[in-house]
């Protein structure tokens, strides 16, 4: 038995994986038993919110990183511009 007080990270990860698996199972079960009251047809896709969360998060980071090539500049960008123009 692991001493979780000593290793809180392990406790966190085990709890996380349990929640992840439970959410996957519950989604299938409640979708099958018509527990959900959705308004759009695409919400009825099995594991829609899991996919939306995972892909949405990853896409957000990747697209933003792509935008970063154009809009990320030095920390003192405006100060430097000012000094150069002076």
């Amino acid at each position: 038995m692991i001493n979780f007080r000593k290793y809180p990270k392990k406790l966190f990860w085990r709890l996380y994986y349990v929640c992840l698996v439970i959410s996957l199972i519950l989604d299938f079960y409640w979708l099958y038993t018509h527990m959900f009251h959705y308004h759009f047809s695409f919400q009825h896709i099995p594991q829609f919110f899991a996919l939306f969360g995972l892909l949405g998060c990853m896409l957000l980071i990747l697209i933003a990183k792509g935008m970063g090539f154009f809009i990320v500049v030095d920390e003192d960008y405006y100060q430097k511009r000012k000094e150069e123009s002076n």
Binding site: L20, S23, D27, F36, F49, A50, L51, F52, G53, L54
Partner: peptide
Amino acid sequence: FSITQLFIFSFLG
């Protein structure tokens, strides 16, 4: 449920 599942998988991402 939907918001909880959304967060669980956002964390994974």
